[in-house]
Amino acid sequence: MPQSPLVTLNNGSRMPALGLGVYQSSPEDTSAAVTSAIQAGYRLIDTAAAYGNEAEVGEGIRRSGVDRAELFVTTKAWISDYGYNETLHAFDRSLGKLGLDYVDLYLLHWPMPTEFERTVAAYKALETLLNEGRVRAIGVCNHSAEDLENLIARTDIVPAVNQIELHPYFTQKATRGAATDRGIVTQSWSPIGGVMVYQPENPNDVHNPLEDPTILVLADKYSKTPAQIILRWQLEHGLSPIPKSVRPTRIAENIDVFDFALTADEVATIDALDTGKRGGPDPAAVNSALFPFAIED
């Protein structure tokens, strides 16, 4: 059974390099997907308050039969809960839904540069949770290099992780570089480019990395699937991909990427597919007006 190698975070915590993401996994599918993933060798599970499936993630963990201490569980504070006391409350809510005593990584979901004071206050709540030992590491999502610098200037603890949209068509080299300079691990959401397919800018002009000729040639060479080639590319860059699936066969396939390696030239060939265009929301535009929904207690 394959298992992911571990990455050491900047506070000494160790995180599996590859995990299961559950964004857009329906509550009814999530528990089984999480159990299937853990039984297939996954030890990192990534959810968020805004995904609406934290309780099902917790249920899947309990059903797996694997000891909690062997797992690395991530969740995220939603923007409606930004602010110091509000974020502390949001954490308690998430912990209750998960049915856990602690989480391994707690993240801010978006930077909210137009509501930056609330973002800073929320991050200071994360620092408190870390200092109290209720979380093992803290970090952020969707932060640009500028967002990272602004946050670090106003807070005490450098984020351990910055989770961003990152796939062969949107490689975010500058943001990755800024994170590396600060000792921050870059984690990739939509790592095989699904965001380009399920919410394309133009439904009549869909660009799917899994169908790119460059990826298909490499898949044929290594007798791997296109998804496995892209995940291996992520790992060659020292990134932490968290692919989503609810299908046991695909879940098992996505972690079966530790028995081969791409050459430097092959990695560079995939790098060259970058379009500079994201598929998800522009973080600079995200605020409580764009996403006005709140998380229920």
Rank of each mutant, 00 (worst) to 15 (best):
P2G: 05
P5A: 05
P5I: 04
L6W: 00
T8S: 07
N10F: 05
N10Q: 06
G12M: 09
G12D: 08
S13D: 05
G19W: 06
L20A: 04
V22Y: 00
V22T: 15
S26T: 15
E28R: 09
E28V: 08
D29G: 02
S31V: 10
S31E: 14
S31A: 15
A37C: 06
I38A: 08
Q39C: 09
A40N: 12
G41H: 03
G41T: 03
I45E: 07
A48F: 04
A50W: 01
Y51V: 14
G52C: 11
E54K: 11
A55M: 13
E56Q: 14
V57F: 11
G60T: 09
R62H: 12
V66H: 07
A69T: 10
A69Q: 12
L71H: 08
T75S: 13
T75A: 07
G83Y: 05
E86H: 09
E86A: 15
T87I: 07
L88G: 00
L88E: 00
H89V: 14
A90G: 04
A90S: 12
A90Q: 12
D92L: 13
S94G: 04
K97A: 03
K97D: 11
L98K: 15
L98N: 12
G99H: 11
G99M: 10
L100W: 10
Y102C: 02
V103E: 01
L105T: 02
L105E: 10
Y106W: 08
W110R: 15
P111D: 13
E117H: 13
E117R: 11
T119C: 09
A122C: 09
A125E: 01
L126Q: 02
L126V: 02
E127D: 02
L130R: 02
E132D: 10
E132F: 05
I138C: 07
V140H: 10
V140Q: 09
C141R: 06
E146M: 03
D147F: 14
L148D: 02
N150M: 09
N150S: 09
I152A: 02
P159Y: 11
E165Q: 10
L166S: 13
H167V: 03
P168S: 06
Y169G: 05
F170L: 12
F170V: 03
Q172A: 11
Q172E: 14
Q172T: 12
K173V: 11
K173Y: 04
A174I: 14
T175K: 01
R176K: 08
T180C: 06
S188Y: 01
W189S: 02
G193Y: 04
G193H: 06
G194H: 04
N204G: 13
P209W: 14
E211F: 06
V217L: 13
L218T: 08
D220Y: 01
D220H: 08
K221G: 01
Y222K: 07
Y222T: 08
I229F: 01
R232V: 03
W233R: 03
Q234C: 14
L235A: 02
L239N: 07
P243Q: 08
P243I: 15
S245F: 05
V246W: 01
T249N: 11
I251W: 14
E253N: 12
I255S: 01
D259P: 04
F260G: 13
A261K: 07
T263S: 15
A264K: 12
A268V: 10
T269A: 15
D271W: 04
D274H: 04
G276E: 02
R278C: 00
P281W: 15
D282S: 09
A285M: 13
N287V: 01
L290H: 04
E296Y: 06
E296R: 11
E296I: 02
